[in-house]
């Protein structure tokens, strides 16, 4: 099968991929709905099928929560998305800048890289309590957590990508008369961008989980809060609705990042 797919034009292959994905989803939902028919089924009592939890969205006028705490689903999605994108954007720019600075000298590499290596494996969720203490319940907390989850890995990646640049590319720039600042700007930065962005995309899931964890444990708005509200109200419909939106939004962002990568950071050095 894969051989056949690769022989087809690109759009046909991607259409096939989308169609297959949709079929898979439909099959899962179908089985789920079938199981949900039997109201005595203990599994679907906890995991109500989409036909049960989706109407919650419309009944409540797209609002979740009680009284003054309630927020529209749209708002929750936006809040979470803004937090993740801000945190990732700051981490992306910051780690490229730091990576460049670190690779300026052999010594800074030797001294700083081990520290980064120690920081990188810390799960972003582990920063949640600290961030809550320092920044309180605010957007800053969420952004900080995303940043911490991505920054160290990306900085290490930037340093590695700079090392990976083929020497002739840099020599050519110098040979053509480029000073060191212009070589940074016109060779090193463009050469490392695609690799670092790819890693950013791969780390998005970690950042996404970190924000949701923060929203579930401390913050008062965002997608994670939807799930927690469901928990507090013992409302499985709401929990599943939240989970569903988290899945779909996360998938959409991943596709968006892929699109950005293909459009703006497509080259390979």
């Amino acid at each position: 099968m894969p051989r056949q797919i690769s022989g087809q034009p690109a759009w046909q292959a991607s259409l096939l991929a989308i169609a297959c994905g949709l079929v898979s989803c439909a099959v899962v939902v179908g089985i789920w709905e079938m199981a949900g028919r039997d109201s005595a089924n203990p599994v679907t009592q906890v995991l109500p099928p989409p036909s049960q939890f989706l109407p919650v969205l419309f009944e409540s006028d797209f609002k979740v929560g009680l009284g003054s705490q309630s927020a529209s689903i749209y708002q929750s999605v936006m809040v979470t998305l803004i937090r993740v994108s801000l945190g990732m954007a700051i981490a992306f720019v910051g780690s490229i800048a730091c990576g460049l600075l670190i690779s300026l000298s052999k010594w800074s590499e030797l001294f700083i890289l081990p520290l980064l290596g120690l920081m990188a494996p810390i799960a972003p969720i582990a920063w949640v309590p600290l961030a809550l203490v320092v920044f309180g319940v605010s957007n800053l907390t969420a952004i900080f957590i995303v940043f911490m989850g991505v920054f160290f890995t990306l900085t290490i990646a930037t340093v590695a990508e700079i090392k990976r640049i083929p020497a002739p590319l840099l020599m050519t720039a110098e040979n053509l008369g480029g000073g060191s600042f212009n070589r940074w700007r016109w060779v090193i930065i463009p050469a490392v961008l695609p690799g670092v962005f790819t890693l950013l995309r791969l780390n998005f899931i970690a950042a996404w989980m970190a924000v949701l964890a923060a929203e579930m444990t401390g913050l008062r708005d965002g997608l994670g809060t939807v799930v927690m509200t469901g928990r507090n109200l013992f409302n499985s419909d709401l929990i599943l609705l939240g989970i569903c939106i988290i899945g779909i939004t996360g998938f959409a962002v991943d596709r968006l990042l892929l699109l950005i990568q293909r459009k703006f950071f497509w080259w390979q050095v």
Binding site: L169, T172, N175, P190
Partner: peptide, 13 residues
């Protein structure tokens, strides 16, 4: 002193 390297050194971007 210009150099045309043996390997491809065009900037892919």
């Amino acid at each position: 002193i210009g150099m045309v390297f043996q390997e491809n050194t065009l900037y892919p971007w």
